[in-house]
């Protein structure tokens, strides 16, 4: 059996990749994908602990996260489309004002 520390290290790496991508990327869609990466990094540690302790609640929580992520993706993509329509760019550095 694979030790839990492997899962956790992998989960940490995934999360760190997400954070780094979020901070350094300028394209809004890439940033969006980085967020998904962070969420899934956390999901991985949830299921790892659930398997380790034979507790079902961790598994259930992952489904919640997925549902929320799906909803977020829907809303987020809608915002991105709206931003692109009004500003004609996907570079977040150029989107720093709420008012047009």
């Amino acid at each position: 059996m694979v030790p839990i520390s492997y899962y956790l290290i992998l989960s940490g790496i995934l999360f760190a990749c997400g954070v780094t991508g979020f901070l350094i990327k300028r394209n809004i869609i890439t940033i969006f994908m980085s967020i998904e990466l962070m969420l899934n990094g956390v999901n991985l540690s949830f299921v790892a602990f659930a398997a380790q302790w034979h507790a079902l609640s961790g598994q259930v929580f992952v489904f919640f996260v997925m549902v929320v992520a799906a909803a977020e993706a829907a809303v987020g993509l809608a915002i991105i489309i709206s931003v692109y329509r009004t500003r004609e760019t996907l570079n977040v550095d150029q989107v720093d004002l709420l008012k047009l």
Binding site: L23, I31, D93, D96
Partner: peptide, 13 residues
């Protein structure tokens, strides 16, 4: 409070 999204993210991080 610059309005720059990535600087906010940096502060959070």
């Amino acid at each position: 409070q610059s309005g720059n999204l990535r600087s906010y993210a940096g502060w959070v991080a």
